[in-house]
Amino acid sequence: MSKVCNILPMSAVNVLNLVKKYKDFEAVKGLSFDIKEREIFALVGPNGVGKSTTLKMLSTILSPTGGSVEIFGLDIVKDSKEIRKIISYLPEEAGAYKTLTGYEYLRFMASIFFRDKKQVLKTVEYGAEICGLKDKLKDKVKTYSKGMTRKLLLSRAVMIKPRFAILDEPTSGLDILNSFEIRKIIKQLAKDGMTVLLSSHNMFEIEFLSDRLGIMNNGKLLACGAPRDLKEKFSTNDLEEVFIKLIQ
């Protein structure tokens, strides 16, 4: 079992010795960490180190080969149906249905989670408020820029007010302004009570957003802690240097 992170049993999310194998390739090699309620936890590392695979396992769309994950006391294998009611997952570089308008897309996704029409409407209004796309929500998604689509998808992911939001590279490919707005939204959502797990390879973003982070390489967790603690531990002012030192 990994001893990189101290795991508290009462945490919102407990990941214990998580393994994912694809035939001969082991993408995740015994990952262990926990996320406290209302915390923003980031998985950091270069492309292809197993961040997205970990997030997909926590989203219940991939099955772990070994280890266990509990989300608010529910097991991701045994209680996957229940977990899907309290989580929301934003895949990396995901798209929305291009033939729908932004508004229709939000309504479609809200209808999946809520039966009551008033609740659906309220959720869509909240989503519209978060994404800030205003009148553009009446346009088809295919007319949106990458930044607009990402904002729409992020608002889709969080408008249902999930207990646990899993965001894979939330600002990937976005310009400075759009990235800044999305980071602000995520920060506010955590303040409002949402537990967030995100992945990124942007150290600046991680430093700004996360309460704690886990640095991954080759499917393993190399270090875990608050950005300030890690910088102190490695005697540097920069998270990027922490990462480089860890790899070397």
Binding site: K56, S59, T60, I61, R84, I87, S88, Y89, L90, P91, E92, E93, A94, G95, A96, Y97, M109, I112, R156, I166
Partner: peptide, 9 residues
């Protein structure tokens, strides 16, 4: 489009 991943979760 990865919309399937969204639906599956």
């Amino acid at each position: 489009n990865k919309t399937l991943e969204t639906l599956l979760s």
